[in-house]
Amino acid sequence: MSTVFETKLTSLPLLHRGKVRENFSVGDDKMLIVASDRLSAFDVILDQPIPEKGMVLTQMAQFWFDILADVVPNHLTGIDPETVVSAAEAPQIKGRSMVVKKLKALPIEAVVRGYLIGSGWKDYQSTGAVCGIKLPSGMQMAAKLEEPIFTPATKAAMGEHDENIDFDTMSDVVGRDLAKQIREVSIALYTKASDYASRQGIIIADTKFEFGLDENGTLTLMDEVLTADSSRFWPADQYQVGISPPSYDKQFVRDYLESVPGWNKKAPAPVLPQDIIDKTAAKYRQAYEILTGRLWIG
C-alpha cells in the first residue's frame, strides 16, 4: 500500500508545503499539487500518515471537478503530472497529483452547511445563529437546515485555527460584489453535489470550497473539492437528529483525539493506534467507492 508522508522532489521548485498538500512551480503559469498522506486534525499535523489518503483525496477531487464543471471554472489543466517531473520522481506523485493553473488565491474558506453540526452547532448553542445567520430556536444537533447556509471562515496560518466570520466581514476582505458571487457559486456547488450524493446514499452535512482569480479576474474553483478532508460525509441510512452521525471522513480521528485525556489540541498530537489508522484509511476508500461508484484500486 502506497504511503507518502512528504515528497522529495528536486526537479521542480517548491512553492509551499501545507498541512496536507505540497505545491511546486511548473513554469510561470502552472503548478503541481501533490496530496501527501499526512492528516491534519484541529489544525495539528499528526505524525502518522494514513496510507493512500492523498491518492483518494486527489481522485475524489478530480471526480467532483468533472461533475461540477458547468457551475464554475476550475483550475485543472489536463496535463499529466508525471510528465512534469523526472522519471525517478514519478512514483512519488503517481495518483496523488494534479497540474493546475496558478491563481490569485482568495483568503477565504467558502463553507456551506446543510446540517447543524461541528463549529456551527457550537455557535448556534451559544448565540442561536451561525456566523451571524439567525436560525429557528429549539434545533437539535445534526438537524437539517431549511436551506443551505453560507458561513465563511478566514484561512489560518499553519498551526492556527480557521476563524468563522460573517458575510459582512468577508465582504470587507474581498469586496461585496465578489463576496456575493462566491456565496452564490458555493451554494450552487453544494446543492448540486448534495443532490448527487443523496442518490448514492450519502449526506454531505457541510463542506468548504476554495477559490482564486485567474489572469482575467474570473472566479475559479481550486485546491480540493468535496473530499473527506474538506467535508462531512454521513451514511444516509444511519442518520438521525440529536446525535453526531457516523461519518466517512476524518471526524473519526477527531472523535478519537477528543477522547484522549489531557490533550490541548496543540502539537504534538497523540499517537494514533494502528486500528484507528486502518479504520480511517478504510473510511476514505469507502467514501470514494460509494460516491463514485468505482472500485478503489489505488
Rank of each mutant, 00 (worst) to 15 (best):
N264R: 14
I290P: 02
N264L: 10
G293N: 01
L272D: 04
K265V: 08
P270H: 03
A267E: 05
K279Q: 12
L272W: 13
K266Q: 14
K265N: 07
G262E: 02
L272T: 06
I277K: 09
N264K: 14
K279A: 12
T280K: 07
K279P: 11
T280W: 13
G293T: 00
G262C: 00
A287H: 05
P268A: 03
I277Y: 13
P270S: 03
L291D: 02
A269R: 13
E289A: 14
L272P: 04
Q286T: 05
G293C: 01
L272E: 04
D278V: 12
L272I: 09
Y288S: 02
G262N: 01
T292L: 10
K283W: 05
I290K: 07
D278E: 05
I290A: 03
I290S: 04
Y288N: 06
I276R: 14
R285L: 04
A281C: 09
Q286K: 15
P268V: 05
I277H: 11
Q274E: 14
I276Q: 10
A269K: 09
K279I: 10
I276D: 11
V271C: 09
I290C: 04
Q274A: 05
P270Y: 05
D278L: 10
A282R: 12
G262R: 01
N264V: 15
W263R: 00
P270I: 03
K283N: 10
T280S: 08
K266G: 13
K283D: 09
K283P: 12
I277N: 04
T280H: 09
Q286V: 08
R285K: 14
Q286F: 14
G293V: 00
P268N: 02
R285E: 07
E289T: 12
T292V: 01
K279V: 12
D278N: 15
I276W: 08
A282P: 15
P268C: 05
T292H: 02
A267Q: 08
A269C: 10
T280G: 15
A282S: 05
L272Y: 05
I276F: 11
A281N: 08
Y288R: 00
I276M: 11
P273M: 10
A287R: 05
I277Q: 12
P268F: 03
D275V: 15
Y284M: 15
L272H: 05
L272R: 06
A287F: 06
V271Y: 13
K283V: 13
G293R: 00
A269D: 03
K265C: 02
K265S: 04
R285T: 06
I276G: 13
W263L: 01
V271Q: 14
Q274K: 13
R285A: 09
I290M: 03
P273F: 03
K266F: 15
P268E: 00
K283R: 09
W263I: 04
D275S: 14
D278I: 06
A267L: 09
V271D: 04
W263G: 00
L291E: 01
R285D: 02
K283A: 12
P270N: 06
Y284W: 07
W263Q: 00
D278K: 05
K266W: 09
G262L: 00
L291Q: 02
R285W: 12
N264A: 06
P268H: 02
Q286G: 11
D278R: 09
G293Y: 02
P268D: 00
V271F: 11
K265D: 04
I290G: 04
Q274G: 07
A267I: 12
E289P: 03
K283L: 10
P270G: 08
R285G: 06
I277G: 09
W263T: 01
A269Q: 07
Y288D: 13
A287P: 06
T280L: 07
